[in-house]
Amino acid sequence: MNLFLQSKVPNFWAQPFNSQGIWMGVLGGLLVGILIFLGLMFMPAQFRRPVVAFCTFIGGAYWVLLYIFPAPIDLQKTEMPTGPVESIGKWLTDANPVVVSISGTVTAFMLGLGIFSLLSIHLKRISRRQKDWAYSVILLVSLVSMAFFGYADYISRQGPDGTKLDLQANWGFVNYGRDLLFDGLLQQMDAAMFSVIAFYILSAAYRAFRIRSIEATILLSTALLVILSLMGAVAFVWNDAVKNMANGNDFLMNFQLTEIAGWIRRTFETSSLRGIAFGVGIGALAMGLRIWLSLERTGGGA
């Protein structure tokens, strides 16, 4: 049993590539989609919340069912499931690629929303000649250039010899264009943006890191210990001094910097982070349930 969306044999749902059937199906589906869209637009306000709650519930129900429902044991591809339990279990397993595809596609459309918003803001700024509109032109030109060279690079690799373009020696104009914009500019600016924080950290540590309370002292001491233990040269000097003093005494060897830091890490650091993780985990589970069942007003409610 295959899910209807995965059938290899042509049927109502699955039609051969470039056939009349597939294009009729796509057109018909689009029409149905538009009707649903319009129907939702003009739907009475009291039905909005139940519709959103239903969609949210269906989204979550698949993973919950997949988790709690017994999966068929060692069922081969050629075998038919026996009984309703095994059939439902197999159906749920078969639905996996469809659910993953739907998740990815819907999320991709949502990602496009950010770009759409960015475009509308900057196009508006240019058309109205608002303050700093020239920067918006730079943004749009760079956006279009990146998309153009990126797509041209992608297309250039599609031919039978596309894999040869993995080596720079075989590149053409569009490949150099993509590399200059992506690796030469975007990636270097990405690195620069994230490294700027180092300056602020130093400045903040100098101005604000004061030993004023027990909490601040504990925090500062742990941070210092972690930092020093991860500095090979410091650890080497400390450990060497302890080794010379210990003179073979196993107990004293525990006072090597790496041993002390390791013990603190295993005993207090991991446990405190685990405590935080348990707290977050309980919160996430509760939030998950509330969103799934639309009990969270800020989640799926309309």
Partner: peptide, 20 residues
Amino acid sequence: FSNGEATINGMGTSVRSSFN
């Protein structure tokens, strides 16, 4: 993969289906 959570979760059942 734009929806990493769903993709990785799907890999737990079948890698092939997540790479569909």
